[in-house]
């Protein structure tokens, strides 16, 4: 066979699953095997089989420690729901804090199947860490140790999210990558501001440093989001249209969600910044709808995404207002 053919077949052979995909597949198959055991043969054999499977599981536990921990703890949680519930409000330094981050969140990560729920949950984890920083700071307990712990966790989540984003990019789904960066940007941006407000009340070098890291992260996310949006704008008409339409319903849901959140949490105070922000989100949404109708799908996508970001910020402000009792004035500039 001539060289070109040979080369062609060699290259064809290199189309493979990624390592991670393959191990996930294997793991899924293992549980499938356990759910669907061999239905013939005698009892002795069945028992040996089971032990082999559990050996494999044990081996996999070494490979996927967090996942396995989550599995084991899923049961623990079912049995001891109380501790896990109590842990939900734990902050770094509390005895129950590891239960919150490892057990409770581990279970949720384990239960997030689709790419969408996984990314949303990762963003939420980043948000939870930043909220913890805010609470600690508001209580005057923001130490260097807590700062390091929280930042390491944020870093880890952000890194995983950026990997997910590049995977989406490589699959030609710049719109999904843009969403990840946009969510992160909104989260870092809003919580950076809230943290800045908390700092107004309590001083501390650690907090200042933490805030500057959060702000840098916001900038990084913004740049990545803008790059991804350029990608989306460069896509073909149909793909762009689908992306814009998908984003439209996502933005609609987000605004509704935040509206409910604010209605449930807001105190009776006059217009807070959260509400002003929410109105801004709604107007960005309206602009997006107009662009969509006019057939400017790329621009519509960007506007819907902006609406989502602004709504997300509104939520962070309402949260700060409710939990930290920090009043965020309308039209606040930081």
């Amino acid at each position: 066979m001539d060289q070109k053919l040979k080369e062609f077949f060699q290259k064809a052979k290199r189309v493979q699953m990624q390592k991670e995909e393959k191990s996930l597949g294997l793991k899924a198959l293992l549980s499938y095997i356990e759910e669907n055991p061999v239905r013939f043969g005698d009892n002795t054999r069945r028992q040996v089989q089971r032990s082999i499977i559990s050996d494999l599981q044990r081996f996999l536990q070494l490979l996927y420690k967090p996942m396995a921990v989550a599995l084991v703890l899923l049961i623990t949680v079912a049995v001891s729901g109380g501790a896990s519930l109590a842990a939900e409000n734990a902050l770094p330094g509390d005895i129950l804090y590891p239960v919150k981050t490892e057990v409770n969140e581990g279970v949720r990560s384990f239960l997030s199947f689709s790419a969408e729920t996984r990314t949303n949950w990762k963003v939420e984890q980043v948000e939870r860490r930043l909220q913890e920083a805010e609470e600690l700071a508001a209580k005057g307990k923001f130490s260097g140790k807590a700062s390091a712990e929280l930042d390491a966790k944020v870093e880890q989540h952000a890194e995983q999210l950026s990997q997910m984003a590049s995977r989406f990019n490589s699959q030609g789904r710049a719109d999904l990558a843009a969403e990840i960066h946009s969510d992160l940007e909104a989260t870092f941006d809003a919580h950076g501001k809230v943290l800045g407000l908390v700092r107004g009340e309590v001083n501390g070098l650690e907090l200042s440093e933490f805030i500057s890291v959060v702000r840098t992260r916001a900038t990084t996310a913004r740049q990545a989001r803008q790059e991804a949006e350029v990608e989306v704008q460069a896509q073909g008409g149909t793909q762009q249209r689908q992306a814009a339409e998908g984003k439209m319903s996502a933005a609609e849901n987000k605004i509704a969600e935040v509206k409910n959140f604010i209605a449930a949490k807001a105190k009776t105070q006059a217009e807070t910044d959260a509400e002003v922000k929410l109105q801004a989100a709604e107007s960005a949404f309206a602009n997006g709808s107009a662009k969509l109708q006019a057939g400017s799908y790329g621009e519509a996508f960007v506007l819907f995404q902006q609406a989502m970001r602004v709504a997300q910020e509104a939520k962070a402000y309402a949260q700060a207002d409710a939990v930290l009792e920090i009043k965020i004035e309308a039209g606040l500039q930081l």
């Binding site: 064809a12 052979k13 699953m17 294997l26 061999v38 054999r45 089989q49 082999i52 699959q171």
Partner: peptide, 30 residues
């Protein structure tokens, strides 16, 4: 004991990529 599981998991290890590749060429969607 557990011959079936072992063979099956070995098959995944050995042919998983090839089957994935085959599907890629069939459906053109990773």
């Amino acid at each position: 004991p557990a011959k079936e599981e072992k063979l099956f998991l070995e098959a995944y290890e050995k042919y998983g990529d090839a089957i994935f590749r085959h599907c890629c060429f069939k459906v053109s969607d990773r």
